[in-house]
Amino acid sequence: MGWVVALHGGAGDIPRTLPQDRREIRETALRHCLEIAVSALKEHKSALDVVELVVRELENHPYFNAGRGSVLTSSGTVEMEACIMDGNTKKCGAVSGLKTVVNAISLARLVMEKTPHIYLAFDGAEEFAREQGVETVDPSHFITPENIERLQQAKEANRVQINYTQPMLNVSNNSDVPDGDSQLGTVGCVAVDSSGNLAAATSTGGFVNKMVGRIGDTPVVGAGNYANSFCAVSATGKGEDIIRATIGRDVAAVMEYKGVSLKEAADYVIESAPKGTAGLVAVSAKGEVTMPFNTTGMFRACATEDGYTEIGIWEHEQCD
């Protein structure tokens, strides 16, 4: 069985009028991360190591909403979250509410491997990071000028629009910031290595102007991130919709219980979610790969051992 890898930098309302410089900078980053994944798989690194490595790289990239570049809470702070899962053992680790950890995904892996728990959050997660000696920096490191501006725009829009009695409707209106970058996104990577091991990793800063303490779909196993012996899935989009649809687990459940292909299962799950809310990347133990979304676009890339490569943003379109 050949290896396969897929990664994403978020799904959302990405306008086709996205300025060329903004577009290119992200395409270059996707291509760079894909190259890292491909060479790691060629060196026979395990799927688990590959997804961690790639998500670390995406986190370090300031133009995606994870790690440095994370969007800000309503208080102007960063609260990052991440989740990693190994398909064959179904072992998993997750973190939420991180303020100083450079690579949230690596802390999630440490939670999986070095604690009796699966999920640590806020002060407890920060304390664990210090115990383990992972790299931390001042919270200001993660805050980019673009994100300060985004928060300001979101707050101005909110002043008139927020109506807490209609929460699901307003999430969509308030999350779109008119600079065309749609920082709804998240980053993620899924891989199956040549030994047939599957893994998934996802990391995010959440969404602009979120309430302090808000947890999205990313760290919720079975929602934003999931892997078992059938497939590995990383989802992105509107967290609240992904949680209630348990999107990650559902792709695997539909495959297993209905006996359909990865593509059929993923298409079914994405079509069942409200339009404009979700996208995912997924690979299967059989070496299938699929990257469906029901939003305007999704920053995405994939590669297979037999030489197929795809990098794209919108539907029916592929970057050179």
Binding site: G97, N170, M211, G213
Partner: peptide, 17 residues
């Protein structure tokens, strides 16, 4: 579920709500 735009709040944010 009913009074916030989110579905999951934790720690100080939950206490504040």
């Amino acid at each position: 579920m009913e009074k916030s735009p989110h579905s999951y709040l934790a720690f100080s944010g939950a206490e504040e709500l």
